[in-house]
Design a protein around this nucleic acid. Sequence first.
DNA 1: ATCTCACTTAACGTATACGTCAACTTCTAT
DNA 2: ATAGAAGTTGACGTATACGTTAAGTGAGAT
Lengths: 138, 138
Amino acid sequence: MSDTLYTVTQLANDLGVTARTVRFYEDKALLNPRRAGNNRVYTHRDRARLILILRGKRLGFTLREIKEYLDLYDADPTRQEQMRALLKRVQARLDSLVEQEKALAETMAELRTIAQQTEAALAALPASEAPSKVRRAR
Amino acid sequence: MSDTLYTVTQLANDLGVTARTVRFYEDKALLNPRRAGNNRVYTHRDRARLILILRGKRLGFTLREIKEYLDLYDADPTRQEQMRALLKRVQARLDSLVEQEKALAETMAELRTIAQQTEAALAALPASEAPSKVRRAR
DNA sequence: ATCTCACTTAACGTATACGTCAACTTCTAT
DNA sequence: ATAGAAGTTGACGTATACGTTAAGTGAGAT
């Protein structure tokens, strides 16, 4: 009944990251697994937490931001404040991405212009349309 | 004529960067101004070069890539090989940006989903719809 | 008993593009 | 002569997310 326990390597492989990464997250206080002697032991809760972390990363949040969110999760039993905060973050990120989208479009337009101009300039060149393989075979 | 000469600070201010940046580019062999004694002196050619560098940056190329391009510019009198190389780089960058665009769209979609779900969850909450300003005024 | 694997901590390395001193030298103006 | 502005060369600092040794511990397998 999902009382499975994991070692670092297991959990890491399971979620497609390295053990180093998982330990790193712990160092950054994003995870806090129990120990069996000296070794880390992860529960399904830890696993869920890590999944949240990875999702946050995919969505472009920094580890610091993710940590703030997770800290709220822990400190907010009703989860209301946490959801408000989440909403704020998500909106902000969306705004930022909208801007990125614009910038991206502009950049692509400029690159396409350059490509066209360059192609035109190359086509206007008279000699050596292709680097003739037999130029003075030696 | 445009035989104007610039000092680092002048050139930097002129193009909206810091003198540190201009010197940094020289350290990276992207610029190679003359000297008047110990001081850097920039010509309109140097200025044009710097403009190219900044443009490349705007378009998302690394300084290393920009340097390769500029080196070609110097070593290729006909400018043909250079233009081919440029075309290649530009195409590659465009491909990369197209992928970024996709990833961006996916990310935004996921964020919008999260936002909606969070809003719904918040709306479903009974108490304290807004953090009432007068909660037990003390 | 020894090998070998998995685990541990600590700490330096990486990539990118500069920012920010520190410590001088030089030039111009007063 | 001297203050002040501007220039110079190092060289370390910054931010982010880990990678990569190094050096050692504990446990099961042979």
